[in-house]
Design a protein around this nucleic acid. Structure first.
Lengths: 333, 333
DNA sequence: ATGAAAGCGCTAACAG
DNA sequence: CTGTTAGCGCTTTCAT
């Protein structure tokens, strides 16, 4: 592969000049520029990003890192796409790692990012007291947190109004005449879980409906727990008339539990899920769900990061996006 | 961030020595090694991967690139996970790009990979005559192609026996008494589509069932086409008793078309899909599907790449993995 | 077994 | 406007 020197020789100029046209600095005679561009074409020169990154301190338009908990979760995939599009659009390259909910792996990947000299980092942290993330942020790498906060750290973030989303969903169920609504929560150490649960409870309270502890089950955001806990709820002597499930994977589990019991949605049990997925519309009946703007979240996160590049001292901000209740047929009509 | 020099100073040795212990070369007195390790700990030194990559020619244990067409397709995500796990296990870092079926973007990302000096590349190419991929391979970067071939190029690849998978599925439908099976194919310029169609046809042929052209529709592997084409098939004066759909997204589309017409699966129409997805089991009834070993495909691809690192001259190989028919309830029993 | 020193390809002063 | 040159942090001969 050709390098700067080769191009310089070919064009009959110095490497500095070539570098200048590659980074389109203004102080180059247009004649020289043309000459250089020709040489670049001829040799199919492509600057070596590694060398460039090694040399430059805060080189713009380079590399950003994205670290997510789970690449199999379609919501995160939406976020990834949002970030990717923004990065692509601004000429940044993206390096992506998924730590599959493994904190050890998260730490490793965070270190990797640092040692790859990323200009900035977008992270969906594991927990709210994520040590590795905190340390990284404090070390000064421009960072934005997504979907979850990290406690006691001043950092840009973009999240969703989980409480309001859950509130709205619960309210919807209530309005349709459901008095006893089973809730399947995510793990309580995660902020999103807490917020969603709060939304569920506040909606009940607002409608003066008693919140039965027995109707709330705590899962781990994975399929199996959704399946098992929905089963428990459904097998109660006095089962709830509706189920609200706090994420898509657990909703899938709940669906299986419902079908296995030969229950009909929504007549036997209404169902509403947090996270709207591609398959929701193809279910029978189509699933009513709380949709999170994953793509937009990713886009905004990237934007925030770019802003910080250009103004490292600006106040950190927290962007809160709204969810949207997509009413389909799984709660009756 | 501390660098080699800092560590060297701290440990009272030269940078060369530090470098040696970091790459655990054998020719270091164990005493010196300990001293250095202590310094590394003390300064929390982490080698700068960028500098390392710039310096080393074919540095092992470094960076591999993965380029996929679509990060929203769960099958590709499985492949990604397979690659990731293998990379992680062998201490390689992974840089991932999805070109969203955009050839221009694919080219750009391929260039990016090269300019990041990846040691090797795993690619799910866009088309069988993918220029950019061919050029890259010819340029000598160790590469393995996944899921699809590229014509006229000698390259390691790992694929699936699409024809056999489709054959088996069709056969299953046939055995259950279906004589007229609608088939929704992917775009004919893609090899996987051609192979799957061939499997469908050979199964019919083997059972002496006439292959009606009218029962075969060509989609584009996306939701909308599955939806529309399933509709066309279902609305035929003499509709098929079963539908076989060539990928998961189109299956979702078909599902919606079936439900909208208030048809029951499998009594009114049996359904089988290529690609087994997380949601398949939660459908009502659970979906019978042809499962591709995505994770294994990714793992094998990575393995092939590592092999090539250690033996750049070995013959290229083509690994063909088998699909598995997962019989659930969507075809009757 | 260890150290000195020469780059990898690029950018960014600094000179001119 | 253009060229010269000194590194970025690391690996890797070549000496010792």
């Amino acid at each position: 592969m050709a390098n700067l020197q080769d191009v310089a020789r070919e064009a009959g100029v110095s490497v500095a000049t070539v570098s200048r046209v590659m980074n389109d600095a203004k102080n180059v005679r247009s004649e020289t520029r043309t000459k250089v561009q020709a040489a670049v074409q001829a040799l199919r020169f492509q600057p070596n990003r590694v060398a460039r990154r090694l040399r430059t301190r805060n080189g713009l338009g380079q590399l950003i890192g994205l670290v997510v908990p789970d690449i199999q979760n379609p919501f995160f995939v939406e976020v990834i796409r949002g970030v990717e599009e923004a990065a692509y659009g601004s000429g940044n390259a993206l390096i992506l790692s998924s730590y599959q909910y493994d904190e050890e792996k998260e730490k490793l990947y965070l270190n990797l990012m640092r040692s790859e000299s990323v200009d900035g980092l977008i992270i969906i942290p594991h927990g709210k007291k994520d040590r590795a993330v905190k340390q990284l942020i404090r070390s000064g790498v421009p960072t934005v947190c997504v979907d979850r906060y990290v406690e006691n750290v001043d950092v840009d973030s973009v999240v969703v109004d989980n409480q309001r989303g859950a509130h709205e969903a619960t309210e919807h169920l209530l309005k349709l005449g459901n008095k006893r609504i089973g809730y399947i929560s995510g793990p309580t150490e995660m902020l999103t879980s807490v917020e969603r649960l709060a939304g569920y409870q506040s909606a009940l309270w607002e409608s003066c409906v008693e919140c039965e502890d027995n109707l709330i089950r705590v899962g781990d955001y994975k399929y199996e727990s959704g399946n098992r806990l929905a089963g428990e709820l459904l097998d109660l002597p006095e089962p709830p008339s509706a189920l609200f499930v706090a994420n898509s994977l657990m909703t899938l589990g709940a669906l299986e539990a419902i079908h296995r019991r030969r229950l009909t949605i929504p007549t036997d049990v209404a169902l509403i899920g947090f996270d709207d997925m591609a398959w929701a519309i193809s279910l029978n009946p189509p699933l009513t769900a709380v949709s999170q703007p994953g793509f937009e979240i990713g886009r905004r996160a990237a934007e925030l990061l770019f802003q910080r590049f250009s103004d490292p001292t600006r106040q950190t901000v927290r962007v809160v996006l709204e969810t949207r209740l997509i009413v389909r047929k799984s709660c009756g009509s």
